[in-house]
Amino acid sequence: MSRTPKQVGLLVDVTRCTGCNRCVEACAEANRLGQPDVTLQQSPDGLSARRWASIVESPAGGFVRKFCRHCLEPACVSVCPVGAMYRTPEGVVLYDSRKCMGCRYCMMACPFGIPRYEWESSAPLVRKCTLCYDRLKDGGLPACVEACPEGVLAFGERSELLALARRRLQEAAPLYLPKIYGEHEIGGAAVMYISHVPLDFLGYHGEPGEEPMPELTWDWLAKVPAVALGVAGLMTGLLWIIGRRIQAEASRQARLPARPIEEQK
């Protein structure tokens, strides 16, 4: 029996980031993304179909790497009508362009606004960070982790990274906010942050809550079979009852004046 692979993770230590951008360049190189296709004015956070990661300035100062969080219960995967967005056994969220029909629901549902679209293409695809899944498969590290000169990014098993994060929070307590971003919010994510500045601004509009996003729709979808059967049953029942009453009424009407009492025996 094969062992289930461990959930991988990536820890970002915001305090160490100098915003040198080498991880972004390494990402572009490793994924052959070419030159960025949008200006800062079109994409304030720097993400685009050709830039799967970017360094953004926190409103409170400090540089924060913005990229896919690889959520444990991803909104994008749950909303995809065709299974083009999926989660690998290692917990990496990937995209299969052969299935995608381009409805862009994943882009709407992502609470961090991560997936981007090839708007200029006539056969556009959704693009986002893959955590360099092909490199991981070959036993390597994500390109950004390899490129970072300051040790901002740590890759490994998620449980070990959580321990590492807790250790750092403990050892250099005054430096960090006492929180591991990505540990619990919306069900947790493979990518986690520890930081000296609040990271709420990474949310698309406000910080996501604790509840995993898919549950917002699951509450309704779970009712769908019952609603379908209920409505079908109700309609058939009504059809039958009302039909019978109309029939009974009609035959009563037909019977009453026409037939004399003797014939009813």
Partner: peptide, 10 residues
């Protein structure tokens, strides 16, 4: 590709 957890699929 059946995706029962997707509203769009339904």
């Amino acid at each position: 590709n059946w995706q029962h957890h997707s509203v769009m699929f339904e």
